[in-house]
Each structure stands twice: as structure tokens, then as C-alpha cells.
Design a protein around this nucleic acid. Structure first.
Length: 498
RNA sequence: GGUAACGUGGCCGAGUGGCUAGGCUCAGCUCUGCAAAAGCUGCUACAGCGGUUCGAAUCCGCUCGUUACCUCCA
């Protein structure tokens, strides 16, 4: 019934049928945020994309271990030799301990992701909590002759690695091209080759975040944490590695190199999955361009590019309505369309709650053609998801299914034409895909106090009309909600039931 | 400069060589006290030029345009 899931593997540049290494277990590692600033729409896209993958794998019955890291050390501003640690820089600016900065932005990230209904990963390791593992890994690489020490810093020796391996395999780079295109020795410093990258950096006296190591008091290179932590929690070879397309080079390329150089297992992860970027007016949304929109700004509407605020579920739907490997262009029009589309899907949920398949329907004559048509629409939903997680197609199919559901609701199509099996399949699939797999949920309605005021108005009217049965009903129903009505001399008010 | 993508109707956005993606917008109809919702119908496109093919948005080539990566970014 459900097709096998296929995923586009950056490593092979092909869609491949997903087969876990040790079914039913699946190990999945996704590069999480560097917690030195507010999470933005780009973070949301990555998180939502892999959230849906996580959810769908679980839906298919796999036992998934989902690891997503928090980068809290070693991510430098610029070139590995020159740059300042992003977190340390922020800490200086705000007169905080670096770990305060880390904690603050981790909290914000969690809060925003929760709003987007992104499930927390099973393990969320921090780079600073895995210094020992990273040092051990550097030692292995040194022993294998693919790194060298200079003045207390350790660098990965890309040319040495490339003799027996293929540096550039993931990103399709050719090492000779990379070498010839590198700017003239600028900022190369201690590195033997401009392609080499830091595994361990000796800390300058002013550097706060530092740990002892066999080579110096210092800190690990950015790429290393992912190699060390994925290995620790998922093993030397695991199933899926995800992240944003912009991490493919050099970050993921370096990860592969480190992993191979240390334990000599091929590629570490078997399926490399990359989500594409969000664009604004056709241009990538990015830190360096300064055109990114924070999630809190989207939720509140406070940003010069925004004409209104957009709810978390609107954002989630917006992201899901495009395929994860396409760029997705931000615009207010697109967001507003997403809001309506999302609402439509939610209304479908309500309709389904009201639709009851009655016993007598079973005595009807099933319309074979209609049953078959609905079965096909349901299978289309799965076809989209299974085909490289094409949520756009799944949503389109859900809308097609919804048309039928609405027609049943309006009595334009008779429920008795459906078998109970088809009805349950339709109803369950719609609910499960929308809620459990796409991870959409209903957002609270408008202002409850305004609604209460409306009820109180009816209450007053009923009282004036001496319609006491109505009055009693209103009181009883509100009491069920934990609310009591107070008839005061000054008017009618409500209070929480004590 | 090197590498890799992409160019779909008013907007967003799917698309496995032949069968209506879908959403939003707009117009009309059904329904309706007025509306809304919903259903139905319409507006029906594949950058350009060649080629392959019985048949191409889909494959190939060229041209034009846009973008990404090669430096930090999800």
C-alpha cells in the first residue's frame, strides 16, 4: 500500500530507496543551530523539513534515534585562523558569560521550535559537552597521519587525506580546482595547504572558552563536533545525515573527511539529505546579507518586510507547501495564501469530526467507482511523502481528498456509497497525515474573553425575557468550562469557579 | 573564473515523455434573509531557438536570464 520511502542522496546525486542499516532502527543526525543569535526563517525550514522526515519515519514504523546538535563553541566568525568565536563575540558585546549566551539562545530556539510544533530530538548534544570525544578523535586522525600540529594547534591535512580518499565527493568539488581557486596564501597562516582546516585551535590569552588538551589550552574546530557526536550516539556508520544546503561545503565535506580519517568507515552517513534555502526577492536569506527575518518577528509582525503577523502554523504550512529541495521565496502574498490554505486543512479536521459513519450506511450499495477514486486519492497522499518527502504533493492530494470529504459533509455525495473500510481509511489518513506527519495543529481561536462577553450578552437577554430554562443552560454549560456567572447589582460578570 | 542548480498561468508552487497538480487571487453559478463556508464552472502556463520522438514543461544542444556554493550562514 505505502510505497517505499525514497530520498535524494546528495552523495550519489540520485533518489534512492531508503533502507536502514539495522531495520527497524534508524539513526538520523541533523546539524542544529549555532546558538549566538535569534532563530530565523531559515532555521525553521531546516527544522521543519527534518521534523517531517522524523515523523514520517516513525509513522512508517521505524524506531528512530534523532540527534540534533547545539553548536556552542568553536564556530568562528571568519577564516579559521583569524576569526573570533561567534559566541564569545556576542558574550563580550552583551557582557555575559559565553554560556549565558548559549543558554539564552538555546532557550529561544526551543521556544520557537515548540511553537512550530517541531518535535524535540531524542538527543541534543552540545559541542562543549563533548570535548573529550573530540580530542580523542583528533588523536586518531594524527595517528593515521592525516593531521599535523603547529604551535599548539592541530590542522587536518587535506592533501594527505586526499591521497587515499576523495575530498570533495559530497559537494562535487575537485580538489585541484579548489586549490587553484584559492586566493593567494591570504590568511593561510599556520596551515600547510589553504584547504586544511582546524581540528584544534590554541586559545589566545583573551579567549575565554578554552579546554586543556595534549597540544594546548584551546578549543575544537567547528566541523569536528558533528563527527564526534554523531559517532558517539549513532555509531561509525549510520543512516541519515541532514542539514542546510549551505553546510554541504565545507562543513559536511570536512565531517566526512574527519570521520574517514579517524575510523576509516565510508562516509559515516549513508544518506545525506540537504534542504534548500529560503530566499527574499530571489536572494538567499542569510546572515551575511542582513536580509533575514527572525521567527519572533514573523510571529509578531514587527519587521519592515512584513505587512502582518503570521502564526507559527502558517509558517509551517508555508514551508511544507514547497518541496524541501527547492528554494522557497518569501513574500507577504505567499504567506497570506499559506494562512488560508492552512485554515482550509484545519476546517477539514472539523468536518471529519462531525462526519459519522452510521450503521445504516453499511446497508447502502457501495459505489465501487467512488470507493476506488477515494482510495486513489489517499494513496496519492502517501505517494507524495514517499517520493523524496514531497510534502507539496501530499498537501495537494489532501486538498483533493478534502473536496470529497466536504461533499459528503454537504450531502452532495452520500456516505452510504462508501464502505466502512474506505470511510475509516479516508478519515484516519487525513487526520494522521495532517496532525502526526505534517505536524500541523489547530491554533487557539480568537480572544476567549470576547467570546465570553458574547455569551454573557445572551445570558442577560434570556434573563430579561425570563427564559429561565435558557438561563440555566448557559450557566450549566459555562460551569462545565470552569466558569461561573455572577449576577451583580452593577451587572453581569464572570469568574473562575473556585 | 570554477562548480551546481533553476527559469511553469495574476501570485506562490508540484510535475514519473502522452491523462486537470494544488493553494491563493479574480469572474460566474448552486446554496442563502444578507453573508460566509462549501461544491461546481471559467481564466489554463511551461524563458527563447533548434533537435530526438508518433508525441516533450519533462530528454539533448545552443542562446538569454536568475540564483547558489567556492568565506560565516539552516
Amino acid at each position: 500500500m505505502q510505497q517505499k520511502l525514497s530520498l535524494y542522496n546528495t552523495l550519489t546525486r540520485k533518489k534512492e530507496v531508503f533502507e536502514p542499516l539495522h531495520a527497524p532502527f534508524v539513526g538520523m543526525y541533523v546539524c542544529g543551530p549555532t546558538v549566538y543569535g535569534e532563530p530565523h526563517l531559515g532555521h525553521a525550514r531546516s527544522a521543519v523539513t527534518f521534523d517531517v522526515l522524523y515523523r514520517y519515519l516513525k509513522y512508517l514504523g521505524y524506531k528512530v534515534r534523532y540527534v540534533r546538535n547545539i553548536t556552542d563553541v568553536g564556530h568562528l566568525e571568519n577564516d579559521a585562523d583569524e576569526g573570533e568565536d561567534k559566541i564569545q563575540k556576542r558574550a563580550k558585546l552583551e557582557h555575559l558569560e559565553p554560556m549565558e549566551v548559549v543558554q539564552h539562545y538555546t532557550n529561544v530556539y526551543h521556544k520557537d521550535m515548540d511553537k512550530l510544533n517541531v518535535l524535540r530530538p531524542d538527543i541534543e548534544p552540545r559541542a562543549s559537552g563533548h570535548i573529550i570525544e573530540q580530542i580523542a578523535m583528533i588523536q586518531e586522525i594524527l595517528e593515521n597521519g592525516m593531521a599535523y600540529v603547529v604551535n599548539g594547534s592541530v590542522y587536518f591535512d587535506v592533501p594527505a587525506y586526499h591521497k587515499n580518499h576523495n575530498y570533495g565527493r559530497l559537494s562535487g568539488r575537485i580538489i585541484e580546482d579548489l586549490l587553484s581557486n584559492t586566493r593567494e596564501t591570504e590568511g593561510q597562516g599556520e596551515k600547510r595547504s589553504p584547504l586544511d582546516f582546524a581540528l584544534w585551535k590554541k586559545a589566545s590569552p583573551s579567549h575565554i572558552m578554552r579546554w586543556p588538551s595534549p597540544w594546548s589550552d584551546g578549543f575544537p574546530g567547528w566541523h569536528l563536533e558533528c563527527s564526534a557526536m554523531s559517532r558517539k550516539y549513532l555509531g561509525t556508520t549510520f543512516d541519515i545525515h541532514g542539514g542546510g544546503l549551505d553546510l554541504m561545503f565545507p562543513h559536511h565535506e570536512c565531517e566526512i573527511a574527519q570521520s574517514q580519517a579517524s575510523h576509516n568507515h565510508t562516509d559515516a552517513a549513508r544518506y545525506w539529505v540537504h534542504n534548500n534555502m529560503i530566499t527574499v526577492n530571489g536572494q538567499k536569506m542569510g546572515k551575511s546579507l542582513g536580509n533575514f527575518i527572525n521567527l519572533s518577528e514573523l510571529f509578531s509582525g514587527k519587521h519592515e518586510l512584513l505587512t502582518s503577523k503570521y502564526s507559527p502554523m502558517t509558517i509551517r504550512f508555508f514551508i511544507l507547501q514547497a518541496h524541501y529541495r527547492s528554494t522557497l521565496d518569501f513574500s507577504n502574498e505567499a504567506l497570506q495564501a499559506a494562512r488560508k490554505g492552512y485554515t482550509k486543512l484545519m476546517n477539514g479536521l472539523h468536518v471529519l469530526q462531525k462526519l459519522q459513519y452510521q450503521e445504516e450506511n453499511e446497508n447502502g450499495t457501495p459505489d465501487e467507482k467512488l470507493n476506488a477514486e477515494i482510495q486513489k486519492l489517499i494513496e496519492d497522499c502517501f505517494r507524495g511523502l514517499s517520493d523524496d518527502l514531497n510534502t507539496a504533493r501530499t498537501i495537494a492530494s489532501l486538498f483533493n481528498l478534502l473536496k470529497k470529504i466536504n461533499s459528503f459533509y454537504l450531502g452532495q455525495l452520500p456516505l452510504s456509497a462508501l464502505t466502512r473500510g474506505t470511510f475509516d481509511y479516508m478519515s484516519n489518513t487525513y487526520k494522521e497525515l495532517v496532525l502526526d506527519v505534517l505536524g500541523l495543529k489547530e491554533e487557539p481561536l480568537g480572544d476567549m474573553e470576547d467570546m465570553l462577553d458574547l455569551v454573557l450578552d445572551f445570558y442577560k437577554e434570556a434573563k430579561e425575557a425570563k427564559a429561565y430554562d435558557k438561563v440555566d443552560t448557559i450557566r450549566a454549560e459555562l460551569k462545565k468550562q470552569g466558569i461561573v456567572i455572577k449576577d451583580l447589582k452593577t451587572g453581569v460578570d464572570w469568574a473562575y469557579e473556585e
